[in-house]
Every structure is written in structure tokens, then in C-alpha cells.
Amino acid sequence: MKKSLLIGATALALTLASPFSEAHRVWIKPSTTSVSGDSEWITFDVAVANGIFHPDHFAYPAERLSVVSPTGKPVDIQNQQKLRYRSVFDVELTESGTYKVFNASQSLVAFWKDEEGERHFWPGRGKTGTVEEFYQAVPQDADDLNVMETANRLETYVTLGAPTADNNKLTGKGLELKALTHPNDAYTGEPIDFQFFMSGDKAHGTKVIVVKDGEKYRDTAGGVEVTADQEGKISLQFDEPGMYWLEAEYEDNKAKAPAKKRRASYVLVFEVLPL
């Protein structure tokens, strides 16, 4: 009993920590991304699931999200509810400009096998692993010990009036997006240019997949896969308007000891509008 609970928790931790390594996808999906008027409400889904955007697996805890107003003020999420397969919440937009809704986390993680060959994962679900704790919690001579610096970022943007970017500076932590094309200014038939940074450096080789909504109605998933160039840049263009899910993954060997690798993921939901 105890063992199965542990495995369950481990699977969940993996799901939240690295949607890439599992087949699951995570997203924050706004009902709409560009609104008009003096103020407006936007309602959101946040979920971990198998298909885009079809919640069928796990309700991502909305309390882990932060919302920043166009002038950089923290904004409360409202009407939050955790449902079976998704969490829902609302944000009231009262300032003109772009709101950012996100979660960002960094952790040291370790995987190993014990003497009975059983797999272990550290730190536990929702926890952040530090170097000090690592030396206490993880057997240093374990088989298949794999230690990584991980960083995961989950974002979406919504705009009242004209898009702005004043609240969106790079933090230098994990894999980040510099939106050369504002995510709320993406239109069919026009190039959409993004640039990725890993810990503040241009993230050459970042692997990106983009999937349009309505995946369940297509025979082939129809995702676009691209790799960032030397500058960390990608250029996308879409003929079809809709809500798009973008996931980027970056990995290299430039980690600080005791980690050997650093691995980061970034997820963005953005809307491509028709003209």
C-alpha cells in the first residue's frame, strides 16, 4: 500500500516537473486572449492531460499560478475551483495592456535505483530540491544515480486593449521566451518570431513543438516541430486561426555539481487570430 502511494506520488511529481518526459501535456488556457472595453473578465482552464486541449488526466493546482498586471502588480485569481480533470479560475482585467499568467519553478532532481532495483525520485511531489538537501537525502553511491538541474515554466498572456510588454523582462532563470512577436499579436499568414533563453543565454538547439486546438478531431496530431537556431530563435507561421499550445525543451551538460545535466521546459498557450 505504502509503495503504491509512493509510486503514485512519484508519477505525479514527474508529471508536474517535466511534462516532456511523460507523454502528458500541461497548459493554462484562456477562454480568449484579446479583449476590449474599460475592463473585462477572462476565464481560464489549467490542466495536465494527454491531448490538446482535452482535460482527461489531472487538475493542475491553480494556486501555484501567479498573475502580473501590465504595470507589474500582482493580481488575484478569482472563482478558483479544482475540478476532476482541470482547475478553473477567472482574472479580471482592469488595466489596459498585457497580463501574464504563469508558474516558474527550478529544482535539483535525482533519480536512482536502490539495492532491490527499485527506482527512486527526489525531491518529492511539489518540492524544490537544494544542493544541501541533496547530500543528505540521496545516497551518493546509488546505482544509476542521475542528477539534474531542472526548470519548468508555464505561461499564457491576455490583453485588454493594445498588447504591452513592460511587465515581461527575462529573469535569467530556466528556459524563457522573449516574444519578438507579442503572443497577443499573432495573426494568420504573418511570421511569429520567438527567441528562447536558457538561464539568460540564447538557447541554441531548443526543441519546440506547436499543436493547434482540436487535436482530438484530427487523424494526425499535426504538430509543428522546429529547433531554435544559434540565436535561440524560431519563426512560425500559421494559416489557421485558433488556440495553439507550444512546448519547448532545452537540455545541456553545463550544470553545476552535483548535477550533470540541466533540463528545462517552457509551455505557452497563445491564440492566432484571423484578419
Binding site: S34, V35, S36, G37, D38, E40, G161, P163, P274, L275
Partner: peptide, 22 residues
């Protein structure tokens, strides 16, 4: 009331992008 009619200006989506949103 409260300029609520502005809620749907975005549906003029070409004009909204070219002018209205700013």
C-alpha cells in the same frame, strides 16, 4: 451603461488590430 458596448469592439477584428486597441 459603463461603456459596456465597448466589449464587442474587438469583434471588428481588423480595425481592432489596426487602430481600435490603441
Amino acid at each position: 451603461a459603463n461603456n459596456e458596448g465597448e466589449k464587442w469592439l474587438k469583434d471588428l477584428r481588423m480595425w481592432w488590430r489596426r487602430s481600435g486597441r490603441s
